[in-house]
Amino acid sequence: MSLSFYLAIPLMAILAILQSTLLPRFPIFGIVPQLWFVATIAWTLLNGLRQGLIWALIAGIIVDLFSASPLGVTTLALMASVALVVFIQRHFPESRILMPVVLGVIATLVFWFVYLLLLRIVMPLTIGGYEFLDISNIANNTRIPDLLGDIASGYSPVGPILTYILTTALIHGLLILPIYWGYYNLERLFSPKRVEI
């Protein structure tokens, strides 16, 4: 295991604790940015797919420990996000400012898309596993008609969720810059490039 593995565990533990305790107290435009996510994507942009996936695995598991989300859903969504980001990065013009911002936004959008998709698949199973939460299966079996009813009556969660995701993506796009540059300078400090004379 590389050094990054041992760095990722304490860092993600700290970030997950902050995410659960401190950050909800200081939302930005009503949004709590997900620092663990931004930290993982920034690390991926600098260190490539392999390390990105390791970080995604660690971040996903630790973050899910502090969430009602089924364990593994965050990891899978984050891994998909990391893989796509690395793929796009290869075809992206080299830039240390524009590239992290754009890929930070794209990564967030991909993460949420996969996350929601996975929840849609996994949650009915999960709810089945927690029967005490659901005294009436009728309520779950009618989710789609309910959603359509919500849209018709103006109480649809779709609009707010989309707004939330887009705002989060923009905030992550801005937040990734200082973190990316922080990693970049740390790496240069601890492992400077070899120069042949």
Partner: peptide, 14 residues
Amino acid sequence: VIGYDTSPLFRSII
């Protein structure tokens, strides 16, 4: 209450 859910999709407390 010592914490909130890390995922904004879920509403839970610790």
